[in-house]
Write a protein that binds this DNA or RNA. Structure first.
Lengths: 219, 219
DNA sequence: GTCTATACACGGATAGAC
DNA sequence: GTCTATCCGTGTATAGAC
């Protein structure tokens, strides 16, 4: 299709010289990653061909291989760029909320997720699958998240202190439960949007926190 | 490897004649499915080659194609054979349990699952992924489970009646929540076996049911 | 009518030209 | 550092042996 617009590089272009080799390489790499994000999102990891990625970026297959060792390597770089620690973002949001609004926030996050992030969710799952059959990737996935959970757990513990009564979970336990529940619900919601009422997730969260949970229309 | 042991077919062999064409075909189909179960489990859908499946069954690739339209078709037949309604099995188990043992059962089921079913879980996820990108498969997946959830929900509703006090969920809601929570936890446990303490799932289940839940070692 | 043998297309990967 | 040419493996399809 259209070649990448060279003019977009102007902002990083000093007036005196053209791009250095390193800069040029970085630029190509970024273009390839952008194209890969689009192609992988649309076709999935296995469905996407490196030819398609290269063409979308305005290069040929060889350019891909000179920047990434393998298809899997490109995929990894992509996910890494995306994983700007969504958990951290959520952590900050949680700290800004009063204790009894946690369920509401979680519920809304789930709905947003289902609406906007479908492609990324699929790629996450595909990466998970690959990791399940590749010990090295598995290690990567397992090792990288411990600190994130620790931090998130601590923040929630501080929120729990607001409650003024015992909660049956530690902050980290609660974070992991909500994350797992959200993941499981999303998997089903993607296939069947009517799998649950939207408010069920919030109600479950309130019950887990020991907050009053009126059962709405059900039964 | 070793050719299939022909003698194992004797039990279905009437003394008067050899196998009819239909029987022979059915036998080949079963052997191919058995081999496919093994190969797909070990290598995953994309990782498995039809050559490998055929060889494991003692045939060549053409035999596969004369019994199944495509690789995806073989995969579907495999999942169908496996999906002997695990939900129904669980439903029966649940009915045999007193109300306050539901959490314990769910917890044990999760542990068993993680131990014995890893390969199948991966295949389920791969199928889910395929369905997410194929409208026909998606329909199949969404449509096939409604009755199962209905039935399971009813059974749990009857259990809830034993409790003698209101539960904040319908039986079906509870079933879906537990299923989603279990799925999400499993996904993480497969990557990191220490993701949660084994008893956390049971504790969460008890909290959702409003049962007393002592917080064990934590904090 | 079932399976073997073979052909073809496509995608990941590599080597070498420029 | 990018691109062309090429190799190999695998899904797909078909012709023909039995």
């Amino acid at each position: 299709m259209a070649l990448p617009d060279r003019s977009t590089t102007d902002r990083t272009d000093p007036p005196r010289r053209r791009l250095s080799r390193a800069e040029q390489r970085e630029l190509t790499r970024e273009r390839l990653l952008d194209a890969a994000a689009d192609v992988f999102n649309r076709l999935g990891y296995h469905g996407a061909s490196l030819d398609a990625v290269a063409e979308a970026a305005g290069y040929t297959k060889g350019a891909v291989y000179s920047n990434f060792a393998t298809k899997g390597d490109l995929f990894l770089a992509l996910l890494q760029r995306y994983a700007v620690s969504r958990a951290r973002v959520q952590g900050e949001a949680i700290m800004a909320l009063p204790f009894d609004k946690l369920g509401e926030y979680a519920s809304r996050a789930l709905a947003d997720q289902a609406r906007a992030q479908e492609g990324w969710d699929l790629l996450q799952i595909e990466f998970w699958l690959a990791a399940m059959r590749d010990p090295v990737l598995r290690e990567t996935l397992a090792g990288g998240s411990a600190e994130v959970w620790d931090e998130l757990g601590e923040q929630i513990d501080r929120k729990f202190a607001e409650a003024g009564r015992p909660i049956p979970f530690t902050g980290m336990e609660f974070a992991k439960l909500i994350n797992a529940l959200g993941t499981g619900l999303l998997i089903n919601l993607y296939i069947d949007p009517d799998f649950i009422e939207p408010e069920l997730f919030e109600r479950a969260t309130r019950v887990l926190l020991g907050l009053p949970a009126e059962r709405g229309s059900a039964d």
